[in-house]
Write a protein that binds this DNA or RNA. Sequence first.
DNA 1: TACACTCGTTGTACCATACAACTAAAGTTC
DNA 2: GAACTTTAGTTGTATGGTACAACGAGTGTA
Lengths: 150, 150
Amino acid sequence: MADAPREREESLDVIQRELTAFARRARSAAARLHPDLPLVSYTLLAHIDHRHGCRATDLAAHYMLDKSTVSRQVAALEKLGLVERHPDPDDQRIQVLHPTAAGTKALASTQASRRAAYRERLGTWTSDDLEQFAEYLLRYNAAGEDSPPQ
Amino acid sequence: MADAPREREESLDVIQRELTAFARRARSAAARLHPDLPLVSYTLLAHIDHRHGCRATDLAAHYMLDKSTVSRQVAALEKLGLVERHPDPDDQRIQVLHPTAAGTKALASTQASRRAAYRERLGTWTSDDLEQFAEYLLRYNAAGEDSPPQ
DNA sequence: TACACTCGTTGTACCATACAACTAAAGTTC
DNA sequence: GAACTTTAGTTGTATGGTACAACGAGTGTA
């Protein structure tokens, strides 16, 4: 049904267009979901938590950000008391980042409202569709994980 | 297979996490794909073209941007000679935006490299998966189209 | 005619980001 | 083990994208 190259191109265009639209809207949506937390910081904090601690370099690689950007964001999170840095005893260059108790708490409350928004928005989807959509997104992002810096 | 509420929640979390990751990476990816065009401007230009002309207000609504932001972006596009404004004779407040010949050309060349990137990235996907993914994205975005400003 | 609404611009401030230069700690080579 | 190279992170600087607020001009309505 969708085997013609023509259809394939059309699907690619739709994917491209819709992903772009999503990315553009993401900022304002995020601002609505957690007006308190400095937006990007939230994302980084969530990733630190999800990984059960990580380095600034990992964050930079995962989100394709410059290390200077991450450095400042992490500094902001630390200033807010949401993140702690623990120097790695085996390598003095490395700082392992962990959420503080306050960080975990802030994350939980934000996560709750975020979940509610998603649950409402995707409420009419079947569980199978959700699972499939999640799988597609994982596959899509995984393909770009190691995309060359040029 | 995925009918338990538990599985549902997990899918929602994955979707949320992966969409966020995508949105965060989008900027650097876009910068790679068209270093010339001022990034956001490209998106707006593409939308103007896709709609065969539209107003600044439409752009603001579609991308959830402030009208001042759009105003400046459009001004930049006009300065670059990529967009023309035509006052609506029936309503002097309205400016209908259209790509110029140069705009269409710039868009085409950018679109080509963009398509190539997507084609490469999604090369291993079946046409059915692409179609399904496109459909999910459309559905997802449509659900947020009329999301309340609060 | 006055009031309210819509479309767009401009002033201002702020956040997120990149790039470059730098320090410090490890690792590598001879 | 001294000299180079690589890696982690910070800081200075510049820029781009954004929102909010105040405004101007055009349109509709009581």
